[in-house]
Design a protein around this nucleic acid. Structure first.
Lengths: 217, 217
DNA sequence: CAGTGTGAAGTTGTTCACAGCA
DNA sequence: TGCTGTGAACAACTTCACACTG
């Protein structure tokens, strides 16, 4: 019992990770405005968050700030992009090319954030064999045949009832990270990272907060 | 100081709200499979979460479960949809019809989750005057002229540098809830609800977890 | 006794307070 | 004085333990 291995060592808290792309965007705007140095206090003020939190979040990266001056904008941008993996392009397949999947294929900005979609899979005969934004669409059954080794990410945008099954197919094919847009909890082995991003979950929160506000009056 | 009014009374925790659409999807699949009653224990097992949590989450709605039987699937679905506001359609405008905005216009499922997009605003002359999926696209400057009273939600999918400005325009026009897809923290008066949904934030979390995993080996 | 519902314990993340520095 | 960086206090959420119910 004493030899219990400490599993999660020093994982970066998820909320911190989520804030980092925000800092990055903010910093890029600051750079555009010719700012050379920036303090966590200023970031905090402009973004409306707690200054200590900014400091703590940034301290998870390797950067160290200069007292009274702050951080150098350019290196901070580099460090953050590196830390978040936004400057090395990961390849991804998209599963489910209708609706949301289609939409993501049109979102050119993904490339700026480290993800490039190299292929799509669907079951709709009307889609298979065509291309969207230069990305070819294949039949799901051909996944194993087509799958290339250096594609590590799968984007899951199929209808809910197929989510678990398709996720399993992805995992079997060697996909290491699944970006799950369905409102289904996927269960797979530990070695596959699953990132849930249900848009409808966020909608639910927004509606609830709006109702709270109008009830209060 | 003693008369300090308790501000947030009994707000439903955000994590709970986020899980609810998941339960809903799960329940709809259960209904399709002819299940009439369901227990929180079963939901928990199938979804891979803590049973107590399911019970607690459901207790925020008005439903009460029968001991040893669980909850009636149909009424639970109704209660959840009602609680989340998914059965009364809110009207929304979308700001920024390129890339992601375009994608959302193609996501038919939004209607099922209580949101219907009735108009889009952009600045691109090539888009203005056209329609996407039957939704007309106007120039942002015409927003005040066009805005109808019963549209309460604005979807923000403009480039980061215009986010704050466009959000302000929305608020001035009487928008009550802003679904913010930009990685920018928007600051407005308290009476506008802002729901941040930065896809790139989730991407950051996924990349980080994937790196952790491959480092461990 | 399998399941609901709840108060208490534990964990995680946020905010505060302050030491150290230029 | 204005800033970084950190350890301690606090708040939010999750998990555990258990009383209760048909």
């Amino acid at each position: 019992m004493t030899s219990e291995i400490k599993k999660k060592e020093s994982q970066v808290p998820e909320p911190s990770l989520r804030r980092m792309p925000c800092y990055l965007t903010y910093l890029k705007l600051a750079r555009r405005d010719q700012q050379e140095f920036i303090s966590s206090t200023q970031i905090a003020r402009d973004m409306g968050v707690d200054p200590t939190q900014v400091t703590k979040d940034l301290s998870y990266t390797s950067i160290v700030g200069k007292t009274r001056v702050g951080y150098e904008v350019n290196t901070l941008i580099d460090v953050l992009e590196d830390f978040l993996g936004f400057n090395k392009l990961d390849k991804a397949y998209i599963f489910g090319a209708g609706g949301l999947g289609n939409a993501l294929l049109h979102d050119h900005k993904l490339d700026q954030y480290g993800l490039t979609i190299v292929g799509a899979f669907d079951v709709d005969p009307k889609l298979i064999g065509t291309q969207i934004q230069g990305v070819p669409i294949y039949h799901v059954n051909d996944f194993k045949k087509i799958k290339e080794d250096d594609v590590s990410v799968g984007i899951l945008t199929v209808p809910a009832e197929f989510a678990q099954e398709v996720a399993q197919t992805m995992a079997d094919g060697g996909i290491k990270g699944i970006w799950n847009f369905t409102p289904i909890r996927i269960s797979l082995t530990e070695d596959v990272v699953i990132q849930d991003t249900s848009l409808y979950a966020h909608l639910a929160v927004m509606f609830n907060r709006m109702k709270n506000l109008s009830d209060k009056k």
